[in-house]
Simulated scan of single mutants.
Amino acid sequence: MDTPIIRLIEEKDNAQIAKVIRTVLEDFNVPKVGTAYADKSLDTMFETYQKPNSVYFVVEENGRIIGGAGVAKLDNYEGNVCELQKMYFLPEARGKGIGAQMMEFCIGKAREFNFEKIYLETMEYMTHAQKLYKQAGFEYIDCALGDTGHYSCPVHMIRDL
């Protein structure tokens, strides 16, 4: 068995990463409206992250995508803030330190792109994810920033870069 590798998304990964994200969201019974599940970009993740100051990484193990995460400017927000986007891992990717490693990659890129802060939205019952975010220096804030369209995600967090 190969060690999982984190690498930049490629066009050939689109179908696999879309399936990973939808599978994880279904496993957690996340609403299909007002969350990443409804994002048009799910089926074109490679193309979505070709714009300046954005990046998406996938985790590949034995030729199969088992997770991913990215960074892009926060939609509909005036400040120099980016968003940690679409960070999801299949069960076989969890508990191996891949999330922490992915977080380092994303925060590193956010700094490289000269953003001042990194923001995220999640579900209240995604407690393992929140634990990871807190360990990476994120803090809870009371309201959403910008307008991502993810109005069903009630938990908002941010950290300085």
Rank of each mutant, 00 (worst) to 15 (best):
F138S: 11
Q135M: 10
V81I: 13
Y119C: 13
Y77Q: 14
L90S: 06
A38Y: 09
M157R: 05
C143K: 15
K117V: 06
E124C: 12
E116W: 00
M102L: 15
K134M: 13
K131M: 05
V59G: 01
Q135H: 07
A72V: 07
D43E: 15
G79T: 04
K117W: 00
P52W: 03
E26F: 00
E26T: 12
G67P: 04
M45L: 12
S41V: 07
Q101W: 04
Y125P: 02
V33L: 13
V30H: 01
V30Y: 03
G108D: 11
L84Q: 01
M1P: 11
L25T: 01
K131R: 13
K51C: 08
V30E: 05
L161P: 07
I9P: 10
I107R: 02
L25S: 03
R64M: 14
Y133H: 09
I107C: 12
F115G: 05
E11C: 13
K19M: 13
M103S: 11
Q101F: 00
S54G: 06
R7N: 06
Y140Q: 03
I66W: 03
Q85L: 14
A129D: 00
E78W: 00
F89L: 15
I141N: 07
G79S: 10
M103V: 13
G63H: 04
D39C: 13
L132D: 02
L145H: 04
Q135D: 14
Y56D: 08
I141W: 00
V155Y: 02
P31T: 02
G146T: 02
D75L: 12
V20D: 02
K86S: 13
E116K: 15
A69F: 03
I98Q: 00
A72W: 01
D13F: 01
T35I: 07
N76M: 08
L90G: 06
I158V: 15
N29G: 08
M102H: 01
F57H: 08
R22C: 15
H128F: 03
V59K: 03
Q16W: 03
R111N: 05
E112R: 08
M1A: 01
Y125N: 10
S54K: 11
A72I: 05
E121N: 07
G97R: 11
P4R: 03
V59I: 15
I5L: 14
A110M: 06
E121S: 11
L120E: 04
A38K: 04
G95S: 09
R111T: 03
V81A: 04
Y133L: 14
T122N: 02
D147V: 08
K131P: 06
P4A: 00
I65N: 02
A144V: 14
R111M: 10
M45N: 09
M45T: 15
D39I: 10
P31V: 03
I66N: 10
E92Y: 04
K131G: 06
Y119N: 07
A38M: 13
G146V: 09
L74V: 10
D160Y: 00
T122D: 08
E92W: 02
M123G: 06
D147H: 10
D27Y: 03
A136Q: 07
N29F: 06
E116V: 04
G95K: 11
M102R: 00
P91Y: 11
A72G: 12
L120T: 14
G149L: 12
V155M: 05
F113P: 06
E47C: 07
